[in-house]
Design a protein around this nucleic acid. Structure first.
Lengths: 156, 156
DNA sequence: TTACATGCAAACCCTTTGCAATCGT
DNA sequence: ACGATTGCAAAGGGTTTGCATGTAA
């Protein structure tokens, strides 16, 4: 879970972002940021998960609003959206985000993060080769992890 | 478009694969391989595209059969399935496939292929770190390409 | 006050599934 | 002939959209 100052900082950024484009500061929008940043820093959650989590906590919020808000958070850099091989999109907080990539277990779907500088060398080289301003990338390694009972778990 | 011997080889592999698991050699299955391998070697096509292409050529084939057959082709290594940021899955022939990764333009969605050995170093390092047998990976670079009128094209 | 945001449910889109008809073997 | 495969259309599942209601400014 992100410490308090991170959450506060995120809210500030969000406020500025909303103000800049003349969007409203609704309680729903801030509740989403509260809950996303209330998760462990490296947790990946999908819309349905966030919806259930929030409903269970007593919020009255709709899926549609969560979708909308997450889009906004991605837009202003406060959330990152991932699409692994599964059909649901997963989100994670992005404020204290150091770019990292992911390893996903073929069986249990457990997600682990890593960071390897060499990806940047590839991006530089290809940006040049393709005369393209590379804006982002997605790197996912799939493998069979060694976790006990891996094949019987479904951690996603 | 793959040269004739490649197509023949692919069909042989497919025949053996089907025989090995006691599946039938239906004309539909072979028509899918014909058409997939009739495309330029690096072309990415989705199910709907293949369906329309084949219908226009006079085949009577259903989407369901195309989905089924592509699954089989992926299973026996004759096709590769890609899921970029878009929601449709794209397929390409895989017989003459040297593993490569992709650059996708943020605007025009044009796909270009590249190969950079450094990805293997990353896979080795992470396989060790995570005690995981890495079986595959997906690397996609997103950028703004310099193609004339890029923003007005929709090449996907 | 008034336009934007919300909640709900219906619509969407790609993919999967169920089933009767067909066709390899 | 038998059972796998096909085509079709309906169902599924995640996401998006339309619209009446609510609400920030």
């Amino acid at each position: 879970m992100a410490d308090k100052s991170v959450l506060e900082k995120a809210k500030k950024i969000f406020e500025n972002f909303l103000a800049r484009q003349g969007s409203r500061k609704t309680p729903e929008r801030f509740s989403v940021i509260d809950e996303l940043y209330g998760l462990p820093q490296d947790e990946h959650i999908d819309v349905e998960g966030l919806f259930l989590l929030m409903r269970n906590k007593g919020y009255t919020i709709s899926r549609a609003t969560i979708y909308n808000t997450l889009d906004l958070l991605v837009e202003c850099g406060l959330a990152v959206k991932h699409q692994f091989k599964d059909k649901v999109a997963l989100y994670e907080q992005a404020l204290t985000y150091k770019h990292h990539d992911h390893h996903v277990c073929n069986q249990c779907r457990k997600i682990r993060e890593f960071s390897d500088e060499r990806i940047n060398l590839i991006k530089e080289a290809m940006g040049e080769e393709f005369q393209s301003g590379i804006t982002s990338h997605s790197l996912v390694l799939y493998g069979d992890c060694q976790i006990e009972n891996c094949e019987n778990l479904s951690l996603l």
